[in-house]
């Protein structure tokens, strides 16, 4: 599975990338296909399609070693323009 990092940006306006996942690395669980960009849609602007992915994170990655159970996981849908490839 491809490893990706959620971009650590804080743009103003309506975004669907939760702040607690920004800067966190996960694996693509599945590709969902193209969906209209909600950051435009929310304001009634013409919204281009962006690829959407389900990304799986470990609780350790999100909350650190103090996670309730570090091996548990969290999946979230993240748009392609919020993801960067991780090479390692």
């Amino acid at each position: 599975m491809a490893r990706v990092r959620v971009r650590e940006m804080m743009p103003p306006g309506h975004v669907r990338t939760p702040a607690y996942l920004r800067g966190k690395t996960g694996e693509i669980e599945r590709e969902l296909g193209p969906f209209a960009n909600p950051e435009k849609l929310a304001y009634g602007h013409e919204a281009e399609k962006r690829d959407l992915y389900r990304v799986r994170f470990t609780m350790r990655e999100i909350w650190g070693d103090g996670a309730e159970r570090p091996e548990d996981t969290l999946d979230a849908e993240i748009y392609a323009h919020w993801l960067e490839q991780v090479d390692d």
Binding site: L32, T73, E77
Partner: peptide, 15 residues
């Protein structure tokens, strides 16, 4: 039980 993995699904977008 501790040997069960919990998977949380955050409905952040179109699913």
């Amino acid at each position: 039980p501790d040997d069960v993995t919990v998977r949380v699904h955050d409905s952040t977008a179109d699913m």
